[in-house]
Amino acid sequence: MQIETTINNKKVTLEAANDEFLADTLRNYGLLSIRQGCDTSCCGLCTVWIDGKPTLSCSTLAFRAQGRSITTIEGVQQEAKKFAEVLVAEGAEQCGFCSPGFIMTVLAMKNELNHPTEEEIVHYLTGNLCRCTGYMGQLRAVKKYLEVK
């Protein structure tokens, strides 16, 4: 089926099967930052924004993008780089495979929460698994980023 949607502020028409998930559609469209780590809706790697909300693209059927606005890390490179610089300065990207989804969640949090506490930060980011870093460096980076703005 054809899906008319907005991807990274650009109106596009995508072709997708009924049972195709958005993560695959976006990768096929060339957005290779979309990673999948679990197949069971629980690792957060594939996080994109749908109408600004962080959402699992692996569990969203592609047709539901119809009329919505999809944002991937390719579409917010400027802000993503600002945070990535802090993250990388901490060494907390490690293998980097979970980083795009993680960064999309961090940026969504920044838009959604005002001056979050450490506890609120941890809570908001819990759905992003990471096997390399042990999370502490990510937390240091997020705290620095939000203070620095």
Partner: peptide, 21 residues
Amino acid sequence: KGIAKIDGMDIATGRPVYTED
């Protein structure tokens, strides 16, 4: 020195640098 990883920015910001990409 606590130097940042040479590939850090690229892998963190979603560049297509892994096998499947």
